[in-house]
Every structure is written in structure tokens, then in C-alpha cells.
């Protein structure tokens, strides 16, 4: 379990920063655009082949794994898109698209001459595919013939599977009891297998309601409820609790 997995409810933090901008430095747009292009050009998608040389998988899961693997102090230290820049540059080096020496040398060039223009290149089919991806998305929905294990109103116990490199189960909900508020239609897959954490293949997803007083006894505000969307693999029938 990493700090990044269990941010929800963490105490002792500063006031929030009502910063309404999406990008606080002009360079941040560039890394956002690169990330979006990588997702759109990732080869597992059912989209037309293009002239792009991008040939390895990149999804949100890869970006999230990078953030979850960070030293937690670095996670708090770096601004949002600084983390993206580090993770994405590292990915391109690790997968052999560029070398560390190339990016270091080029960084020094642009540091010395920030106005130096970008090179030209590329064909429109690449950008057409990226636009198609943004318009169509990449739905994780799958048909599901079986009856979901849980129904609205069922009391469920949240599991506590090992987190290896990635999870979609917030730490503050582990081993806690909630009530199913919604059973979403059919099933949803996840972007990758999370191994012993348990998600990846299509499975039902539920919205589960939790009482903050149960999550943080005596240490949560009154008069509110918290809900989370949880994959089937993360939930246990509540009878498991008595047997445990």
C-alpha cells in the first residue's frame, strides 16, 4: 500500500488551493497533448493504422502506474504535469524511442535558446486518428449475461487485495462495509490486468455508499455520505466478515 493509494481522508494537510486554471505554465499543454496522442496511437485500439512509429501500449493505467510508483514525497513535491513529464519522458527512453543522452542534449539546446523552432514533419493520418480517438473514446463496456453478485441495498465488505503496481481500490475503503447504491448495467473491463489486485477482465461495477463515521470514527464531518464506484473483484458478501 502506497500513500498515493490512500490519499482519501489523509489528515494534517494544508488548505486547498482554489486554482481554477487547467495549465499554470504554457509548457504544460505540450505534455498533455503528447500524452493524449500516445493514448490515441496505442496499438491495442481498434483504429486505422497510421504512419506513426508509436508501437507500444500506453493507456491511463501506464500513467497512473508511474504516479503510484513515485516516492510519496516526490508525489507531493512535483506539480501535476511535472509528474507527467517525468513519467512520459522516462517511458520513451525505456522503450527505446529516444535515448537519455538525446533528450538531455536537446533540453540544453532549448534551455539556451527557448525560441528555437520545433522541427517539421508528419502526415495528417496521425492527427486524424488522434481526433477519432477523442471523438469516439475507448469504452470499457462489455455485455454481461450473468446476474451480478450484488443487488441494490446489499451490504458489502470491501476487500484488501495486495497492491502490486496499480489499483483502483482507494485505501480508505479497504476492510470497510458499505451498501450497494447502484448496480451498473452489464460489465466493465479495466485498461490492464492489475494482477493479484484483481481487475482487468470485464466484471460488474457497483456504486457503493459509505458512512464517513464508519470510515473515520469520530473524525469525519457529520451530515454527509461518500460513494465510490467499485469493481466486483473488490467486494465480498458481508458474511465473509463474520467468518474472518
Amino acid at each position: 500500500m502506497k500513500l498515493q493509494h490512500t490519499l482519501g481522508g489523509l489528515e494534517g494537510l494544508d488548505p486547498v488551493q482554489p486554482e481554477f486554471r487547467v495549465f499554470v505554465e504554457p509548457w504544460e499543454e505540450r505534455i498533455f497533448g503528447i500524452h493524449t496522442a500516445m493514448m490515441a496511437l496505442s496499438p491495442q485500439l481498434n483504429l486505422p493504422q497510421t504512419s506513426s512509429t508509436f508501437s507500444t501500449v500506453w493507456t491511463w493505467a501506464d500513467l497512473r502506474k508511474g504516479a503510484e510508483a513515485m516516492n510519496p514525497f516526490d508525489y507531493f513535491k512535483y506539480r501535476y504535469y511535472e509528474k507527467w513529464l517525468g513519467g512520459i519522458s522516462g517511458y520513451f527512453v525505456a522503450n527505446g524511442y529516444i535515448t537519455q543522452a538525446e533528450i538531455d542534449a536537446r533540453t540544453d539546446e532549448y534551455l539556451a535558446d527557448p525560441a528555437k523552432p520545433l522541427p517539421s514533419g508528419g502526415t495528417p493520418d496521425v492527427d486524424d486518428r488522434i481526433h477519432t480517438y477523442l471523438m469516439d473514446g475507448d469504452s470499457p463496456w462489455h455485455q454481461w449475461a450473468d446476474k451480478p453478485r450484488f443487488a441494490v441495498g446489499d451490504i458489502v465488505l470491501v476487500g484488501d487485495p495486495p497492491t502490486v503496481e496499480h489499483t483502483r481500490l482507494p485505501g480508505y475503503l479497504r476492510n470497510k462495509v458499505g451498501v450497494v447504491e447502484t448496480v451498473y448495467d452489464d460489465a466493465f473491463s479495466y485498461l490492464c490486468s492489475t494482477g493479484p489486485d484483481g481487475i482487468g477482465p470485464a466484471m460488474p461495477v457497483y456504486c457503493v455508499k459509505f458512512d464517513p463515521q464508519h470510515l473515520w470514527p469520530g473524525n469525519a464531518e457529520p451530515g454527509f455520505s461518500i460513494y465510490a464506484d467499485l469493481f466486483d473483484a473488490y467486494l465480498r458478501p458481508v458474511v465473509d466478515r463474520a467468518a474472518a
Binding site: 505554465e25 509548457w27 503528447i34 513529464l85 520513451f92 532549448y110 527557448p114 522541427p119
Partner: peptide, 12 residues
């Protein structure tokens, strides 16, 4: 800023 520009240039 220089690093992201370097990355974008190399990817192009």
C-alpha cells in the same frame, strides 16, 4: 519548458 520542447522535437 526546455525538456518538454526537447521531447516534442524528438517525437516529431
Amino acid at each position: 519548458a526546455a525538456r518538454v520542447r526537447a521531447l516534442e522535437a524528438l517525437l516529431i
